[in-house]
């Protein structure tokens, strides 16, 4: 009895490790390739162990191309991402509080509108927005990337915050109201401090999506000196310009390090965000 249970446990862990290894292999392969000498990358390609570790790939890759180093791209991405995170936090908390706690007229139809935009394919608004930003003279600036965040550009976050605020007992608001607290006071003093975990989730997701975003910068940024890491890497990896593969892999790894770090440290909030959207919704 005990023996068969042990065997089952062994099979369980063994099969998960096999699937897990397959899952993680492409990432390990990227890291391994980034440390291999040039002539080893596509010879014995599947191997994960370089004969010598060549850190030089990173130094060489960091130089970038033309006179633009990856430092520029990282600074650009950091700026854009920070602004988007701030903007998202600002708009999603205010709007979510309005929808979750204030019984104004037309609240329900407007909330339904927001849910519908949640399912709107990005491509549908892409072209008219481009024309709008083009006419405003915003093309080739960061404004088209940043401004939408400040006006609730990603309704998913508003939805997430609404769900969270609805879970906070209403008695708290009422008690504060009795004590003469204004609506803004209730938002600022009572609700906002209690939403910290949800704020963390929103911040992390908007970080991921902005850092990763390829299409928006591709459409709006023309100047290479304005490029984000995603665009810079795409240009760097262009087959017609790649002279050495090692540095290309090295910069691929470098570009995902911020995401990996955030994932390692804030995993909990990420998991909560994903499940809150799907299960409680």
């Amino acid at each position: 009895m005990n023996k068969s249970k042990k065997r089952r446990t062994f099979i369980y862990h063994f099969s998960i490790w096999v699937i897990g290894l397959l899952m993680i292999y492409p990432i390990l392969w990227t890291i391994a390739s980034s440390l291999k000498p040039e002539n080893e990358i596509f010879r014995n390609s599947a191997s994960l162990i370089p004969s010598i570790i060549k850190w030089g790939n990173y130094a060489q890759g960091w130089q970038g191309f033309g006179n633009l180093s990856f430092a520029t791209f990282f600074i650009n991405s950091t700026f854009v991402t920070t602004m988007v995170v701030v903007g998202t936090l600002f708009s999603s908390t205010l709007v979510a509080f309005g929808f979750a706690r204030i019984k104004f007229r037309f609240r329900t139809p407007l909330f339904v509108c927001m849910i519908i935009t949640l399912m709107l394919p990005q491509q549908v608004t892409l072209i008219p927005q481009y024309i709008l930003f083009h006419n405003l003279g915003w093309v080739n600036t960061y404004l088209p990337l940043i401004v939408p965040a400040f006006i609730g550009g990603i309704p998913f976050f508003i939805f997430l915050m609404v769900q969270f605020i609805r879970g906070i007992p209403r008695e708290l608001d009422e008690a504060a109201y009795m004590d003469g607290c204004s609506t803004f006071g209730i938002f600022y003093r009572i609700i906002l401090p209690l939403t910290t975990p949800a704020l963390a989730t929103v911040a992390i997701f908007s970080f991921y999506w902005t850092w990763d975003d390829f299409m928006t910068p591709l459409v709006y940024l023309n100047d290479t000196s304005l490029y984000t890491v995603a665009l810079g890497l795409q240009m760097f990896s262009d087959p017609s310009s790649v002279s050495a593969w090692g540095p290309m892999f090295a910069m691929s790894v470098a570009s995902i390090i911020p995401q990996l770090l955030v994932f390692l440290f804030f995993q909990k909030y990420l998991v909560e965000g994903i499940t809150a959207g799907g299960v409680k919704g």
Binding site: P26, I27, W29, T30, S33, W211, D212, F214, V229, A230, L231, L233, Q234, S237, M248, F249, S252, V253, S255, I256, Q259, L260
Partner: peptide
């Protein structure tokens, strides 16, 4: 990481 340019390139 899957949606990133890095993984697409790889």
């Amino acid at each position: 990481l899957g949606g990133s340019v890095a993984i697409a390139v790889v």
